[in-house]
Write a protein that binds this DNA or RNA. Structure first.
Lengths: 116, 116
DNA sequence: ACGTTATATATGGTATTTGATATATATTGT
DNA sequence: ACAATATATATCAAATACCATATATAACGT
């Protein structure tokens, strides 16, 4: 990822920022976990994740039917720090706080790293 | 400032991000310094600064004919950290690096805190 | 090969953002 | 009161982003 305007416009949408805040906390998530946590329709989530992927902010990995997303390991250090600093600042606020709670209560999570 | 989408969409424009990166380094600048450093028309700069003001990211202060802008002191800590981390990451790249150099070489700067 | 599940892409309508240009406001000096 | 300077706002066309809905793809089990 190179262009700062693409990076920040990616963060400027609520749905995408909520997805990223979840990824800062949760390491790796599949689409069904995002749709469950955010309470949004699958095409909406998928389209926003596609934009994050094209921006180089997330990386996807297919495993059977599931596609797992995580923060892109090649993201510049400053961009990762922006995400982490933002998460520290807003993770206690709505709707981000609720998203995490809903995700943790989700039944039958696919890969489910247990949330400490 | 409260809404994350307003904050990040403010940063998603090149002109505004360049203004903010200058403010992270320079403390306080007036409009003529922005227009000189960025090489843009006054109305363009003024409108972008207005947007930053409405978003609560900068604060303006009139002194005679000049209007000085600085980072808003009431900005949430995490937002300020986002700006600082971003500056550390990109201040060495174009066009941000050049903006600073052009500003330092500007003749007859108004308040001009000398740049260390 | 067929159905099912998980995810992706396409489409169209509407709203927002942008850049360029013109005009307005506010302050100072005379 | 007038001119000059610094800055702000208004306007409009073009581009972009957004949401909702419909459709397509890809992998798996039978």
């Amino acid at each position: 990822m190179i262009e700062t305007n693409i990076f920040f416009s990616a963060l400027s949408n609520d749905v995408r920022l909520r997805c990223l805040m979840l990824l800062v906390e949760e390491e790796e998530l599949c689409v069904c976990e995002f749709t469950h946590a955010l309470g949004l329709a699958q095409p909406a989530v998928s389209r926003h994740l596609a934009l994050l992927r094209e921006a180089g902010i997330v990386l996807d990995r297919r495993e059977g039917l599931w596609i797992h997303y995580r923060l892109h390991p090649d993201m510049p250090q400053w961009a990762l720090e922006v995400l982490q600093v933002t998460a520290q600042g807003i993770v206690g606020l709505s709707p981000f706080q609720d998203d995490l709670k809903v995700l943790e209560d989700m039944p039958n999570r696919p890969g489910a790293p247990r949330c400490a």
